[in-house]
Structures are given as C-alpha cells and as structure tokens.
C-alpha cells in the first residue's frame, strides 16, 4: 500500500511517516529504506539533517541519497521493500532550482510522470510532502511556479497512492 502524507511544515509529518514505514516493515517482514532528498547548502541544513539522522537512529533504515532523478534509487534497493520518501518538496526544489544554475521552471510535469512510475514499481512507499498553499502573500512568479509545480506532484501522488493522510501537530486526518 503506497501512502501520501502531507500537512503544514514542521508539525510532525516526518516522525509520523517514519512510524508508518517502520510498522509496515515489521508487519510484512520487509527491508526498510530511507530516501534522503535534501542537499545541504549551509550549516542550518546540516543541523536539521543531523537531527533527522539521530531521530532515525536505531529504527533500522538503510539510507539512500537521491536528491535528483528519483527513479535512480530503485536500481539500488528491493523495490518491494518499505521506502520512506522524505520529501517531495525537497526533490522539486533540487530539480527546479539547481545550485549555481538557472532555475528550470518546466520540470514539474516530468517529475510527476517519474513519481507515477515510482508508484507503479513500488508497493510500500510512504511519500512525504508539505502543504504550502494557504499563505496570504502575493508571491513572486518563481515562488508561485514552485507552489504550482508541487501541487501538481501532490495531486498526482494522491491519485496514485492508496492512502492519503494530512497531519496537523501529530493529529491525522485520513482523506483516502
């Protein structure tokens, strides 16, 4: 069963997703993978990554670094295992805004197709995304293009996944 988990930022989604993945792996006796998508660009990112690593310590995850070209990680792991994919948000950020290069504003559709294929090729993936659509700011075009792109990925995954959950400070609403 593929999962899609979203909700506001910094409110317990990653931890909830970890528990969902761990439980699936224990119940089905499957290997447990963590797809790390973040490219650290400063010390703040390093601190965040180290905190996530220490939170995962002892959970039994094998970590695969895959910040770009997401289907690439499927060649390195058992595709029927439990895969925690955290996060769709970072994947789009890495693809759309490559460090030191011009933004690539038309990548969302390609990534949506890759995620669709990811769902077909795997049975027990837990995708984590961020609900960043309810601010009251008049955003610049780049930011809006990113939000529109992420929304396309979210909507694609909601269709492709069997279960959809929204997390708010540890509480979970099941949408599907």
């Amino acid at each position: 069963m593929n999962y899609f988990i979203s909700g506001g930022c910094k409110n317990g989604k990653s931890f909830h997703a970890q528990r969902v993945a761990k439980k699936m792996s224990e119940e089905k006796g499957l290997p447990l993978y963590y797809i790390a998508t973040m490219i650290p660009i400063d010390n703040e990112d390093n601190i965040r990554i180290n905190r996530h690593i220490s939170e995962r310590a002892g959970w039994g995850f094998k970590t695969i670094e895959q910040p770009l070209d997401i289907l690439g990680c499927l060649d390195q792991i058992d595709n029927k295992g439990v895969i925690l994919f955290d996060s769709v948000t970072a994947l789009l950020m890495n693809e759309m805004f490559p460090v030191g290069r011009e933004p690539k504003l038309d990548v969302a559709e390609r990534i949506a197709n890759e995620l669709k294929e990811f769902c077909i090729r795997t049975d027990n993936t837990v995708f984590v995304s961020d609900y960043i659509y309810s601010d009251c700011n008049r955003f610049d075009d780049l930011t809006d293009k990113y939000r529109e792109g992420l929304a396309l990925l979210d909507k694609t995954l909601v269709k492709a996944c069997d279960r959809v959950e929204e997390v708010a400070y540890g509480f979970t609403k099941v949408h599907k």
Binding site: G8, I132, Y133, S134, D135, C136, N137, R138
Partner: peptide, 22 residues
Amino acid sequence: CDDISQGVVSLDKTERAWREMV
C-alpha cells in the same frame, strides 16, 4: 475561494488587511 488563512502574518499592510477581509 483560496484559503489564505494559514502561514505567518504578513509584514505587508495590504496583505494583512486582505487576509482579514477574506
């Protein structure tokens, strides 16, 4: 209508007034 009720309070006066009116 877009839900613009979440996220931080804007520094911009018009955006704050907009959110309240929405």
